[in-house]
Amino acid sequence: MKQNFTVRQGALDGVEVFLSVAQHRSFRRAAAELGVTPSAVSQTVRVLEARIGAALFIRTTRSVGLTEAGERFLAQAKPAFEELVAASEVARGFGQRPTGLLRLSVPRAVLPILLEPLIASFCQAYPEVEVEISASKELVDLAAEGFDAGIRMGQFVDADMVAVPLTPPLRLIVVGSPDYFAAHSPPKHTDDLRQHACLRWRRSSGALALWSFNDNGQTIEIAVSGPLIANDFPTMLGGALEGMGLAQLPEPMAAERLRAGQLVHVLEQFAPVTPGVFLYYPNRRQIMPKLRAFIDHVKSRPPGQGNVSETG
């Protein structure tokens, strides 16, 4: 089938010209208002009349009047066109200043340790922006699901996304509760994990994640076993606190519990470093001001919270 590489004329073509002529009852005054020649106005009206299939104006050498068809067309076209202009102004506002609904897809684990203070300060700085958080472990299709951006661990962000670091690189650490270690000797080497109950994480793909370690610069992965399988880090943290077994977690998640003595860090010398947590979004030519404002807000955070720059 032969493709048509031209844009089909639509029902709105020529309507603005018609409304101007109808208002002024003059092709010449309409042309002056629109900044075109009278002949261009006349030609546009003729094309509109031909497309509609009815004469809209009665033309004489001294005056211009509306036909009955023109009167009916004016009665419905004018309010519709005014609504269209108003809609355009509203849309233009969204493109010129931070406003509207900012939708973010976020894993539940980062909400209390990272996102809540960031969102609170952003909402104070940009009161015209509403922020909607969808807490999910799934790696959603941002465009298909209507999200402006997502937040994920760096290793899970696709290479074709623009990525903005929210944290510096993070260590994955192995922790267990004092009650657990009262009944089990702490592991000294990764091989010792075979004698321990380990809480496992199921990825969104359905696969069970291996535990990753750094052994003198070499990455090793170990399949562990244990009584609990979870699909998010907070559940694994809760299981570790209850003494169900060891958990491998991003260090910031366990930091407060470690300071309080509720968890104990083991295998510290084998802790691998991950890229950290990133804000990511599709590589678009034009970013809506609400998202640009959020990105700038992330970048303006106090020093010491990570080197923030856009990559991808």
Rank of each mutant, 00 (worst) to 15 (best):
L48C: 06
S39P: 06
F81C: 08
A80N: 07
V45H: 02
E49F: 11
S63N: 13
R51I: 11
E83I: 08
Q43K: 14
S63A: 10
E68Q: 10
A50T: 05
A77I: 04
P79W: 12
R51M: 05
V36W: 02
A75L: 14
T44Q: 09
A80I: 07
V64Q: 01
K78N: 07
A54T: 04
A75C: 14
R72P: 09
A80C: 04
V45F: 01
T67E: 02
G65V: 04
G70P: 01
L74D: 05
E83R: 14
A54M: 09
G65Q: 15
L74K: 09
G70D: 02
L56P: 00
L74T: 06
Q43E: 08
Q76C: 04
R62S: 13
E71Q: 15
A69M: 11
L84C: 04
P38R: 11
A77Q: 14
P79A: 08
E71K: 10
E82C: 05
R51N: 07
G53R: 11
A69H: 15
I58K: 15
K78D: 13
E49S: 10
L66C: 12
R59H: 00
P38G: 03
T61Y: 08
R62W: 05
A69V: 06
F57Y: 03
R62Y: 13
T44A: 15
G70F: 00
R46W: 04
V64Y: 01
G65C: 04
S39N: 14
L66Q: 06
A69F: 06
E83M: 09
Q76A: 07
A40L: 12
P38L: 03
P79I: 01
A54P: 02
A55W: 03
A40F: 05
T37L: 12
T67I: 13
P79M: 13
K78W: 09
I58R: 15
K78H: 10
V64D: 00
V41S: 02
E82T: 11
V36L: 09
V36I: 14
A54G: 05
E82M: 15
A77K: 00
A80R: 14
R59K: 15
A50S: 07
S42R: 13
V45K: 00
L56R: 01
G65L: 12
A40V: 07
E71G: 11
K78E: 12
R62T: 12
T60L: 02
P79D: 03
R72S: 11
F73A: 04
F81T: 08
S39M: 13
F57I: 01
V41F: 06
L66M: 10
G70I: 00
T44L: 07
L56I: 04
R46Q: 11
